[in-house]
Nucleic acid binder design. Sequence first.
DNA 1: CACTTTACGATGCGAGTGCATTGTAATCGC
DNA 2: GCGATTACAATGCACTCGCATCGTAAAGTG
Lengths: 197, 197
Amino acid sequence: MPKIVDHEARRRHIADALLRIASRDGLDAVSLREVAAEADVSMGMVQHYFDTKDQMLMFALTQLNARIGERVAAAMDAPSPRAFLRAAILELLPLDDERRSESRIGLAYLARSVVADDLAGLLRAALPYVIGFYAEQIRAAQALGEVHADLDPRIEAVILYTMAQGLVNPALIGHLPPEEVVATVDYHLDRLFLTSG
Amino acid sequence: MPKIVDHEARRRHIADALLRIASRDGLDAVSLREVAAEADVSMGMVQHYFDTKDQMLMFALTQLNARIGERVAAAMDAPSPRAFLRAAILELLPLDDERRSESRIGLAYLARSVVADDLAGLLRAALPYVIGFYAEQIRAAQALGEVHADLDPRIEAVILYTMAQGLVNPALIGHLPPEEVVATVDYHLDRLFLTSG
DNA sequence: CACTTTACGATGCGAGTGCATTGTAATCGC
DNA sequence: GCGATTACAATGCACTCGCATCGTAAAGTG
């Protein structure tokens, strides 16, 4: 087995270039030639590591999801369900350049998933996981007496998630400044939680 | 001035074909040739009525907005602020084939607006209008004693809007069935309003 | 030193793109 | 009828796209 290179590292390097282009100019601007140029490699190399463009797009999306997932996981040492929910939600919102970039990419992928079934599968799979996770936190808070017991954790989780997702576009457009986005999230959490911790 | 045809009718006919393609196969699939074929006209005719493809895309978007706006306006005879808000929100959600189609198109345009400034302008302009409108309804409800006076109408409007927008994707993906979408909206309205009318 | 497998780089192909150009009816004012 | 203007239709052009093909250099095993 000759010419050993770090296969996965190359793929990640190429995928990074792809995500950069997607963030800057949209998914439509992602072509094999553009990706190769952005990654500063030859087009043949890109083809060597990805059989098809669609595979490359899928790989880049999973990489993006993993990146965000890691950040959310890093927030899991929060002292309370509320603090963790808050951190997890804010991690998804375009409050700084990096997350703004991720939101742009995510939006591009979301739109494409409407007509690309394989992408839709990836996003579809993540959804019940996230919502179930929120619901779990809310149930934990209820057990701690931090959330009214008669609230429906499942629906509250859905509303929490949809509110967060809905905040992305106004924030991205610039219609809501970051501090107002955070204030809105806190406003809603204030209503949901009895305690302000 | 010779050969009189209904200029605007032709443009609307072509734009309709464009929206149909965008809904079915995404905005990427919209080419001059595809639009011409879908509208059952020649490509030359499409070019005759739209100087450029971007102009055509813009025109189609304003037509879509107008179509939705009309439906919302038609719901304005609702008996109460709550009933109207409910109707206005549900009008934007993909609960039937037509609105599902509109949501798909809207999502495609939204994603493109991230990199197309002129489209972004159109969507950006609509946002404060919608949120301001929601806030107005909430204030009216407060005056009627149907909403707690100490709630912030502006933030409540933002949350209402973001929740609605966030519901689009799960509903579109099929993760939330229509009845659950409606139930979620009602659940949130129940919390916001004191009266259930 | 072969021999094989991996890792590319270079090139080309067919399809599709937006748009410009050109030609030709049709229909009005005069 | 005549010129002018509108309303198309047809064609071509320069470009980009994803992908296949081909050649070759490197690095491991025997």
